[in-house]
C-alpha cells in the first residue's frame, strides 16, 4: 500500500536507525544505479579511496569534519546516497576555512555548539548520538543559526542542483539539445 507513508512514520520511531545504512525499504532510488552506499569510514571518490580524515582540512580537524559530514547527512538524509556527494559539498567549505578565518570561526564554533547541545541533551557528542531523531532535536535548536543555514544552503545546491544526481531522483535536466520530449514520451503514462 502506502510504502512512503510507512517509512515516514517509522522514521519517528526507529530510534536506532543509522542514517548511513542503506534502507532496504527505499524503493527505486537505490536501484537506479545499483550501487551500494559505503559506510562513513571509507568512500570511493574520484577513483581514489577517501576517508573523513582526508576531507580534512587540517584546521577543522578529524572530529570537526566527521561532525559536519554527519550533520550534512542529517539535513538531507538520503540513505542510499554515497557519502561522496555530501563530502563534495562539505570538503570545499572546510578547505576554504583554512584561509578564511570568518568561515573557520563559523564552522568551528558551529561544531562546538552542536557538541555542547548534544552533551546537554543526550550526554554524548553529536557524532556519537545513535538515533537520528535525537540528532534532529539538536539540529533543530541550531536551525536559525547562520552556521546551520549556510550548510543547509550549500547542501541544497550540492545535492538537488547536482546534474550528476538528477537521474537518481528521476529528473531529466536540460532537454533542448535532445529535442525536448515531443518525441520522447511526454504523453507516456501507463497507470492513470
Amino acid at each position: 500500500m502506502n510504502k512512503n507513508k510507512k517509512s515516514l512514520f517509522s522514521f519517528g520511531k526507529s530510534v536506532n536507525s543509522n542514517a548511513d545504512e542503506p534502507c532496504v525499504n527505499r524503493r527505486e532510488f537505490l536501484s537506479k544505479t545499483g550501487k551500494i552506499a559505503l559506510g562513513a569510514s571509507a568512500v570511493v571518490i574520484g577513483g581514489g579511496l577517501f576517508s573523513p580524515e582526508s576531507f580534512a582540512a587540517k584546521k577543522i580537524g578529524i572530529h570537526g569534519n566527521a561532525t559536519l559530514l554527519k550533520m550534512a547527512r542529517d539535513i538531507y538524509p538520503h540513505d542510499t546516497l554515497e557519502n561522496k556527494y555530501y563530502v563534495k559539498v562539505m570538503s570545499p567549505m572546510s578547505e576554504a576555512a583554512e584561509k578564511d578565518s570568518d568561515l573557520f570561526k563559523l564552522l568551528a564554533e558551529g561544531v562546538e555548539s552542536l557538541d555542547t547541545i548534544s552533551v546537554e541533551k543526550f550526554d554524548l557528542k553529536y557524532v556519537d548520538i545513535k538515533s537520528e531523531s535525537d540528532r534532529v532535536v539538536v539540529l533543530k535548536s541550531l536551525e536559525a543559526s547562520p552556521f546551520f543555514q549556510k550548510i543547509k544552503g550549500a547542501l541544497m545546491m550540492g545535492i538537488y542542483n547536482n546534474p550528476e544526481l538528477w537521474p537518481r531522483f528521476g529528473f531529466g535536466g536540460s532537454a533542448w539539445e535532445k529535442g525536448g520530449y515531443i518525441n520522447r514520451g511526454y504523453d507516456k503514462n501507463d497507470w492513470i
Binding site: 515516514l8 532510488f29 538531507y76 538524509p77 541544497m156 538537488y160 542542483n161 528521476g170
Partner: peptide, 30 residues
C-alpha cells in the same frame, strides 16, 4: 518545477530540511 526548485519551494525557508522533505524529493518523479 524541476528538482532544484522543488527542493527550494516544497518547504521554503529555514525549516526546509530533514527526512520528510528528503523522502518527498526522492519521490520527485512520482
Amino acid at each position: 518545477l524541476g528538482l532544484p526548485f522543488m527542493s527550494a519551494f516544497l518547504n521554503p525557508g529555514q525549516g526546509g530540511w530533514g527526512r520528510e522533505l528528503a523522502n518527498s524529493l526522492e519521490n520527485y518523479d512520482n
